[in-house]
C-alpha cells in the first residue's frame, strides 16, 4: 500500500452551502403567476373599410359598465352578484323564435361522438368606460368566465359524467364546440369625460 491520502477538511462545507442557500433565498421568489387568460382580437386598421358583421340583437348579451362602476345588463341595471346567474341563463336557453327577444338563437351542429346538438349563437359583449376601475372590470370578466365554466361543467356532466377539468383533451375540445366562448369587447367610450 502507498501513502495514506490525508483527509480533506470538510468543516467549511457547511458555511459554503449556507452561503449558497442565502443566495437562493434572496434571488428567487416563490409566488407563481395566476391570471385570467384572454385572447385579444387582431388589430384592424381603422382607416381601412371594415365590413360590419351583423349580429342579431337577440344573440347579444350586452354588459355595460359606466364610470361609476355601475352595471347595466340587457338594458337593466344589475348588481354584480346577479351577473353570473343572468349570464348562465342566457347561455343555457336558446330558441330560434324571432319574436322572442330574450334568449339567443342556435345552430344545429353535428359533432362526432355526440351527435346533433344545438349550439348557441350567444355573444357576450362587454363595454366599459375609460374611467371604469380595473377592479370592477376584472370582477365582471371573472363572473362571465365563471358563467361559461359552469355551463361547460353542465355539458361535461351531461355527456361524459365528469367535470370539465377532469375530461381528456379531445373531450374538452368537444365541449368547447358545444359552448363556444365568445366574449366581445367594444372599444371603451369616454362618456364620463375627464
Amino acid at each position: 500500500m502507498g501513502k495514506k491520502v490525508p483527509e480533506i477538511n470538510a468543516s467549511s462545507m457547511a458555511d459554503i452551502s449556507f452561503m449558497l442557500l442565502i443566495f437562493f433565498l434572496a434571488a428567487t421568489t416563490m409566488d407563481t403567476d395566476k391570471g385570467l387568460f384572454r385572447m385579444l382580437p387582431p388589430y384592424q386598421d381603422p382607416t381601412e373599410q371594415q365590413e360590419d358583421i351583423k349580429v342579431l340583437d337577440k344573440n347579444l348579451f350586452v354588459v355595460l359598465v359606466n364610470k361609476d362602476d355601475k352595471l347595466m345588463v340587457e338594458k337593466q341595471p344589475m348588481n354584480t352578484r346577479d351577473l353570473r346567474r343572468a349570464c348562465k341563463e342566457f347561455l343555457m336557453n336558446m330558441n330560434n323564435d324571432s319574436e322572442d327577444k330574450k334568449y339567443p338563437g342556435y345552430n344545429e351542429e353535428t359533432i362526432p361522438g355526440i351527435g346533433t346538438v344545438k349550439v348557441t349563437k350567444a355573444i357576450v359583449s362587454i363595454q366599459n368606460d375609460r374611467q371604469t376601475s380595473y377592479e370592477k372590470y376584472i370582477e365582471v370578466q371573472n363572473e362571465i368566465i365563471a358563467a361559461y365554466n359552469e355551463v361547460k361543467d353542465y355539458y361535461s356532466m351531461k355527456y361524459f359524467k365528469k367535470t370539465f377539468k377532469d375530461l381528456k383533451e379531445n373531450q374538452q375540445d368537444i365541449i368547447k364546440q358545444i359552448i363556444p366562448q365568445k366574449i366581445s369587447e367594444a372599444e371603451p367610450k369616454n362618456i364620463g369625460g375627464k
Partner: peptide
C-alpha cells in the same frame, strides 16, 4: 400582435 394576455390576479 401579442394577442395572448393574462390579467394577473390573486385567488
Amino acid at each position: 400582435n401579442a394577442l395572448k394576455i393574462s390579467y394577473s390576479v390573486v385567488p
